[in-house]
Write a protein that binds this DNA or RNA. Structure first.
Lengths: 144, 144
DNA sequence: CAGCATCCAGCTTGATACTG
DNA sequence: CAGTATCAAGCTGGATGCTG
């Protein structure tokens, strides 16, 4: 066990030691775990929005650029490459002129997108409560 | 509708226009939407891990610091303040000496945590596929 | 213990210009 | 259209020192 999170004292499987790095592993809470990197690609500034946009269907580079409000072409390009490398996004390039490249989610990407969208929807739905909470917080802080 | 994402042509409810900024609104894909900020707090470098840690139960400042591997006290403090302001985290300070402060999730925070944990679990579970995808990607790219 | 204030290195980002 | 290359600037975040 890498340390950090995952049950404090009660370890669910005492035989975990028998599988050094094989079976489970992958603990996002551990600094060095590769899953932390993937999670950052997925939840990063542009990753989440890109996946969210692609969840609605295949899109071309500049379509994506317009959809994800505020992303620069450099960042979009970078984001797409990271997601493609992680196997979440599929890139389909046609060697025509002018070139045409379509991006869409892989099955794995769709699985992640589902969870991500659930989170996004949850946050969007909570906005009124959040705004209220902020107002209260600021009122108490601002007064003092 | 702010623009950017949200169904391309097919709008599910034609009467959406009757509720200018009341009902739905909050579109993360729009640059200026406050929900984007909240989502960034939740999914940010430390926000997600902090929420994940608190999902297991109430924790004190330094306990959290140890749990979330790699976070500095400055970042943790900052993160907690943002989450508290957003109404996701509750801060309970006891005016004792030495001081004792407990943090835990609000009901809203727990709702978000659920979705977040689902995402994290999904990503962790996909790690093998991701690592495979990366290997393939690098092989093709490195060769050329 | 639970933080805040300050300083500063460096990574991330956005403009801009260029290529196939 | 679909990117890559380069560069300056700004924000992020870590280290340090101090407070109650």
């Amino acid at each position: 066990m890498t340390g950090s999170i995952s049950s404090p004292g009660g370890d669910s499987s005492a035989d975990a030691d028998l599988f050094p790095t094989e079976a489970l592993a992958y603990d996002v809470f551990a600094r060095a775990c590769p899953s932390r990197g993937v999670l950052e690609h997925v939840t990063g500034r542009w990753g989440g929005l890109t996946i969210g946009a692609l969840a609605e269907g295949s899109l071309r580079f500049n379509e994506l650029r317009r959809r994800v409000d505020g992303v620069s072409e450099k960042m979009l390009s970078q984001t797409l490459q990271a997601l493609e490398r992680d196997g979440l996004v599929h890139r389909e390039a046609q060697p025509t002129n002018p070139p045409r490249v379509d991006y869409d989610l892989t099955p794995l990407g769709r699985a992640v997108a589902g969870r991500l969208l659930a989170l996004i929807t949850c946050v969007e739905g909570a906005m009124e409560q959040v705004l209220d909470a902020r107002a209260r917080y600021d009122a108490e802080r601002g007064a003092r």
